[in-house]
Write a protein that binds this DNA or RNA. Structure first.
Length: 675
DNA sequence: ACTAATGTCCTTTTT
DNA sequence: GGACATTAGT
């Protein structure tokens, strides 16, 4: 308490000393629209958290504040810090509306479903479910024959999603982003029409629907008035990664007043593939006249050498709010650009370097390895495992996306919404002897009997499946009794276990996952909130599931660059900085795409506090269809121009620095027999 | 009607 | 190595 100037408005608040003048200007902004351009590491989270605290100190009721963030974790973190700033262990974390656009949409839609003539007990489809539905309809419409070469289900959904989120017309989307599908416009339109119909029939919403229906709620003036009046202030984080549809929603949510704060950094916009557009942040002042703009440039994270490299790299970007990051931090070592011989060499370099830094006192958890695509860390993971270095991976396939977890949840989904045919499909196809034809007849049977899932017991199907279906009906009966969630999942597990053995490899590991699912479930009050939470805010690493980690647990972080957004570490390795990997050769079609890859690289570099290593393997081995094994040479990532390289120390990884383990020598020898 | 085996093409980032 | 369409076998 000593040495703090307390804000006159409320003695509870105001560690104004914690903030620099620009941050304070943003925090203490009164009414009206506010745009905060916050460069990487400039205390964006703190500023937003303090602004929430400030508003509350000014007398705004917490429940009348809406905080839209990119992940749920970000919302929780901010509210936790806001409470800290108010120096009171209050309870407003639960009162402030905080979460992602999708999660908030879910909440609002359940509440105001009647307004849209929809049922509040809808279930939410994740991307895989949505693709599956798209696939089924694609098949039904006869578009799935090989000679047609009709876009695959994933592409169909991507087109649909892009059209919805970007609020563009289908022909525009096709020519701009999916030119090879232009000839299929009519068929796609028919497919999408069917897709929308089917979702309504099944009482399900996909991710895009959550936004789309929210937008519908505020498109109507009386709805807009009602929803707007719920909130005195709306704050949006990571505004550079919102799309057109989200901007329309935000506009619609502010018909009563224009108290809206958006924070973002156009230089860190990396979600264009999800129809996010930098235009939202660039055009914000025009959309909300009278906007006050505050720019945060003082960086508290990185050393100056790291910032010099990052600034040099982003200087190549074209349209942006120019800002140059600077810091008061003194000293620091030059970022290293490390040329490796090949991927194995890169793995060894990273692993050795991690251990060396660890021995110098940098915990593993303060070190991170970043890469463009989830599979880029595959060989490194093997090497880390070999050396016994613990790690956790973020990004890529997640816990809730694994088949067995989705199966288990499908049982609950059926009970929650018996019209959810996708869940039915998931469950029934596990039974041996049941295929598409039988499933369809079973679904008709259920529908004929008032949608009661228990009636699966008396479905007149083949004798071979009679017994299993009987037990399944019993299971649904027990679940409908609504015992505590962990018991529900235990019941599911008991029924599911034999099916799991029949259908999957590694059943024991999968069973363990089901047990962790029971753990997670114990913290939820209702089946519905468990289901939607897992769909909308899935834990992104298995470590999140085990509860708070033990103090002495320590592990290295492996992460896609996308999942590293908003994070920071003492030491950052950016691996595979080679053209084709970064930028990904799948993203070099247009100038815009390449520009986004540049920003992605910028995001990676600016995660580092003290040490930055950028590595690129010169030689790549690639496997071909035949047995032949070849290699090619990869050029350095194009964004590391001469100007950028001038800010770095160039080095080669060279031979292994310490104890050249005999194993790796042997591996090397045996490999080189084929060179 | 369902399953298992075969051949061919594609292989990113996430709410 | 996985997804998907097709074909052959139960």
């Amino acid at each position: 308490m000593f040495g703090l100037t307390l804000d006159p408005v409320n003695p509870d608040f105001a560690p104004r000393e914690d903030l620099n003048p620009a941050q304070w200007e943003a925090v203490s902004h009164g009414q009206g629209p506010l745009l905060i351009i916050a460069g990487a590491g400039t205390g964006k989270t703190r500023t937003l958290a303090y602004r929430v605290a400030y508003l509350i100190a000014q007398g705004v009721p917490p429940s009348r504040i809406l905080l839209l963030t990119f992940t749920r974790r970000a919302a929780q973190e901010m509210l936790r810090r806001a409470e800290g700033a108010l120096r009171r262990a209050g309870s407003f974390q639960e009162q402030v509306w905080g979460g992602t656009f999708h999660a908030i949409a879910n909440r609002l839609l359940r509440k105001h479903a009647a307004r849209l003539g929809m049922s509040p007990d809808f279930t939410v489809l994740d991307q895989a479910d949505a693709e599956e539905l798209m696939g089924i309809l694609r098949h039904d419409l006869g578009l799935a024959t090989r000679d047609k070469r009709f876009p695959l289900k994933g592409t169909c959904l991507a087109i649909y999603s892009r059209t919805v989120n970007g609020t563009e017309s289908l022909p525009e989307v096709l020519t701009r982003y999916f030119p090879w599908t232009v000839g299929w416009e009519e068929e796609l339109k028919a497919l999408f029409r069917k897709y929308v119909q089917q979702k309504q029939k099944l009482n399900v919403l996909d991710f895009d629907d959550l936004l789309l229906y929210w937008r519908e709620l505020v498109a109507d003036p009386s709805g807009a008035r009602e929803l707007s009046s719920l909130f005195d202030h709306i704050l949006v984080d990571e505004y550079q990664d919102t799309n057109r549809l989200q901007a329309l929603i935000l506009r619609g949510m502010r018909t009563g007043n224009d108290n809206v704060t958006v924070v973002g950094d156009d230089a860190q916009s990396i979600y264009a593939f999800r129809a996010a557009t930098v235009r939202n942040i660039l055009d914000f002042p025009r959309e909300f006249p009278g906007t006050k703009i505050v720019t945060l440039e003082q960086n508290y994270r990185s050393t100056m050498p790291i910032l010099r490299t990052a600034n040099a790299l982003i200087a190549a970007a074209r349209e942006r709010y120019t800002k140059n990051l600077w810091t008061l931090r003194k000293g620091g070592t030059l970022p290293k650009l490390v040329l490796c011989q090949d991927e194995t060499d890169q793995d060894n370099f990273v692993a050795s370097q991690v251990l060396a830094l660890y021995e110098q006192g940098v915990p593993l958890r303060q070190q991170a390895v970043l890469f463009r695509a989830a599979h880029h860390s595959a060989s490194l993971e093997v090497e880390l495992a070999r050396r016994g270095i613990p790690f956790h991976k973020f990004g890529g396939l997640r816990f809730v996306e694994t088949a067995h977890i989705k199966d288990a949840l499908a049982f609950l989904r059926i009970v929650e919404n018996p019209r959810d045919e996708l869940a039915w499909f998931r469950v029934l196809r596990l039974v041996e002897g049941v295929g598409p034809a039988t499933i369809n007849r079973a679904l008709e049977h259920i529908a004929r009997h008032g949608g009661d899932p228990r009636r699966i017991s008396d479905f007149p199907g083949p004798a071979a499946i009679k017994e299993t279906l009987g037990k399944l009906g019993e299971l649904f009966g027990q679940l409908l009794g609504d015992p505590p969630l962990p018991s529900q999942l235990e019941l599911v597990r008991k029924f599911y276990e034999p099916l799991l053995h029949q259908n999957y490899d590694y059943p024991t590991a999968r069973l363990r996952d089901l047990e962790s699912l029971e753990q997670i479930a114990s913290s939820y009050r209702s089946r519905r909130s468990l289901l939607t939470d897992l769909q909308l805010d899935p834990p992104n690493s298995t470590s999140d599931l085990a509860g708070p980690p033990h103090k002495d647990d320590d592990w290295l972080v492996l992460s896609t660059i996308h999942s590293a957004k908003g994070c920071e570490w003492d030491v950052v390795f950016l691996i595979h900085a080679a053209d084709g990997f970064l930028p990904s050769d799948l993203a070099t079609g247009s100038a815009e795409e390449i520009e986004e890859e540049l920003r992605l690289t910028y995001v990676a570099l600016t995660r580092a506090r003290n040490h930055l290593f950028v590595t690129w393997p010169l030689r790549y081995h690639y496997r071909r269809r035949e047995l032949s094994d070849g290699h090619g040479f990869a050029p350095l990532c194009r964004f590391f121009t001469e100007e950028v390289q001038a800010t770095m120390e160039r080095m080669t990884s060279g031979p292994l620095p310490e104890k050249p383990g005999r194993t790796s020598d042997a591996r090397q020898r045996i490999r080189s027999m084929w060179d």
